[in-house]
Design a protein around this nucleic acid. Structure first.
Length: 158
DNA sequence: GCCAACGTTGGC
DNA sequence: GCCAACGTTGGC
């Protein structure tokens, strides 16, 4: 099993939006970066765990944990000319872009802020903290994952 | 609001 | 194939 971190701008789609979904489950579409596409298509597997991170808006922080419930499948939003995620390069016969589904599992009692993450010596090499890192879905090492998990009380979502 | 970092596009 | 121009991301 692998660990991941997915960024989202809460003004567009927030952790609370995920909690409000039927079965706390949503599709993660709209990735239009090839490096992230390759990770989604080739590496993300069912039952992998994902930190959901709020970017741009204060407080920038990891909000909670989701589980991959469906592996990569074609991002059909790329096929719709009226949709903002439309990309004429991608076709149903030969899709360029992929999406996957996640379900919210646990929430941190308090968000784990970017400022706090930066203050932890064991996390200095974490992808999120590297200058210029713009990958919207990225790997988290097991050590980093466990360290962050141990920093907070977790609330199970029912 | 600014701007550094980075990815993509398109002319040559 | 190079690279300037442009667009986007995302922290400050």
């Amino acid at each position: 099993m692998k660990y991941w971190l997915a960024k989202t701008e809460p003004n567009t789609y927030s952790w609370q939006d995920l909690l409000n979904e039927p079965d706390k489950t949503t599709s993660w579409e709209g990735v239009r970066n090839y490096q992230v596409r390759n990770a989604i298509r080739d590496e993300i597997k069912k039952d992998d765990l994902v930190f959901i991170y709020h970017s741009v808006v204060q407080p920038m922080a990891i909000m909670g944990i989701a589980k991959v419930v469906k592996e990569a499948y074609p991002d059909h939003f790329a096929f719709d000319p009226t949709h903002k995620y439309y990309d004429p390069k991608s076709s149903p016969d030969d899709p360029t872009w992929f999406m996957f589904d996640i379900k919210a599992m646990q929430q941190f009692a308090e968000p784990v802020t970017l400022t706090e993450l930066k203050s932890y010596a064991p996390l200095q090499r974490m992808g999120l903290l590297q200058k210029g890192n713009r990958l919207s879905v990225q790997r988290v090492s097991p050590v980093e994952w466990q360290y962050i998990m141990a920093s907070r009380k977790l609330i199970n979502i029912k």
